[in-house]
Design a binder for these strands. Structure first.
Lengths: 325, 325
DNA sequence: CTGAAAGCGCTAACAT
DNA sequence: ATGTTAGCGCTTTCAG
């Protein structure tokens, strides 16, 4: 690997001239420029960004920490983030926290060591976020709030979305609506469940506690919960699932029980599954606007990067209800 | 942000002692060690990895370039790569080439400028790969071969998988099997289509060219193709789709036509969709072993990183047929 | 066990 | 239009 010195020596110029060739070529004499061009191509020289960022103190790196990139929602979010940040000259480092506090902590430390200019984080553990604040790192929380933390954050309208979905089920005539809660220690699920409660209350439908599946947090437990309700003949006519993974388990439980969507059971869910509109067109979905989430997350981060001090903002992004039957 | 110098001054030691605190703390006097520990915690000091890699010439970075992380197969692959590489001390930079030659080129250049130690690439454009070879970069191709390039590569058994899937349909009694080809300029799709051809041939089933949907490369075109075949009453009794996205379009076309899987049409596909086993249990799927693909990709890369010269290897990873009805 | 000197590859800030 | 000097934050190497 040739360095700037090598190229400079070969071209018979100083390293600054080579440096300028990349940063401000128009300032160079056309002849020197041509001479350098030949050498750069010949030796496939490309400047060492690491050395550059040591001086400029700008790594051009942004860390993105998600629980699991295999979740289509996070994949979509990352894709959008890249689309926005790449043209701005940033490169992204993607980390999967696997919903694990220790992993999250390690990844955050790593990103800091690597001098990222900012972090976009779907947080898992409150203390890790507090540690970012203590270290005065620039970051944006997406989707989740951990504890009552004062930080920049952008999130979907969890409560509103769940409320609308359940309201839609009620309007379809349903009174016995099972709900798969998700991990209510996480704000999104707490809010979504509250949306369910409040929709019932608004329409004067008594809450049947046995239809609230509190331990449903993944595919298997969701499947088990719904299977149980059906077997015990609780008379559920519809299901509201608080995330996409639990939806899968529930759908499977319904199919296994030889029931059909929407003939026997109406199904509504927060989040989509890739292609679910093709596979179960009758399903009601609360669609999150990942494009807008990404855009706002970047805005909030760029604000911090450009300014010295800024007051944390919390922004809520509307969701869309795709009404099923 | 405190630097090593600041901490050294505060501790009344040289920078080397701080450096050793992180690289070989056991060599330090217990007292100095404690003194440094206090300061490190107090000021949240963490060493600047950028400066370190400038000296050691090891960035600890690996670039991963996929066409689109929203494709569940690539998300799964990335997840696995991270699981393997993170404990080895590598951080990953993920890039979406969007199947675009220019984007791929730009991302590869960027990764090189950022001094990645290796690149894991699902390639799009032949010349970009050739350029990596010219620059003597360490890289591994996954899934695809572009042109007749001599490079380290790991790939699923595309041909075999498609052959098995079509064979299974034939064994179920199907004779009129539509196929959604994908972009046959890409080796995986060429191989998968060949598997279809050869399975038919083996079982003496005449090829009906009108059932080969060559222009099917995405959801919409796949949907259109299948819709067309059904409308023209070509008597198809089953469909083999060469990737997961086209499967969605095809399934939708089938549903739209008021046909059912598997009652009216049997469905087989290369690749899975997340949760498809829950949504359409009767579907036949060729499952790729992304864990093994990731493992071998890393092995091939580590071989190059540790050795000076190595002969390129091409390794094929078996697929699994999940038989449907 | 600890330190001093040198330098990784590059650029900011002045020169000329 | 081009060069010189100095130094980014760290580690390597050699001393002590």
């Amino acid at each position: 690997m040739k360095t700037i010195k090598d190229i400079a020596k070969l071209a018979g110029v100083s390293t600054m001239t080579i440096s300028r060739y990349f940063s401000a070529p128009e300032k160079l004499n056309i002849h020197t420029r041509e001479k350098i061009k030949v050498l750069v191509n010949k030796y496939h020289y490309s400047p060492n960004v690491i050395a550059k960022s040591l001086i400029t103190k700008k790594s051009g790196l942004i860390g993105v920490v998600v629980p699991d990139i295999r979740n289509p929602f996070f994949a979509q979010l990352y894709y959008r983030l890249e689309t926005i940040l790449e043209p701005k000259g940033y490169s992204l480092m993607l980390c999967n926290s696997k919903e694990d506090a220790k992993k999250e902590r390690d990844f955050l430390r790593l990103l800091i060591s690597r001098q990222v200019e900012g972090i976009i984080l779907i947080p898992v553990f409150r203390e890790n976020v507090e540690s970012l604040i203590k270290r005065r790192k620039k970051f944006v929380l997406v989707e989740r709030l951990v504890g009552s933390i004062q930080a920049n954050m952008v999130s979907s309208a969890h409560y509103k979305g769940a409320y609308m979905a359940v309201e839609h089920l009620i309007n379809l005539g349903h009174r016995n609506i099972a709900v798969l809660c998700g991990d209510t220690k996480l704000t999104p699920y707490r809010d979504r469940l509250q949306g369910y409660y409040d929709a019932l209350k608004t329409y004067g439908i008594p809450l049947r506690k046995e239809l609230v599946c509190e331990s449903a947090i993944n595919i298997e437990s969701a499947e088990y919960s719904i299977l149980n309700l059906i077997r015990k003949d609780q008379g559920i006519s519809s299901v509201f699932s608080c995330n996409n993974l639990m939806s899968l388990g529930a759908i499977n439980a319904i199919y296994e029980s030889n029931l059909k969507i929407p003939e026997n059971i109406s199904f509504a869910a927060f989040d989509e599954l890739p292609g679910i509109e093709y596979l179960i067109p009758s399903m009601t979905c609360v669609q999150q606007n990942s494009a807008m989430l990404a855009e706002i997350a970047v805005d909030l981060l760029m604000n911090q990067i450009s300014k010295e001090e800024s007051i944390p903002e919390q922004i809520e992004v509307p969701v869309t209800l795709k009404k099923g039957i």
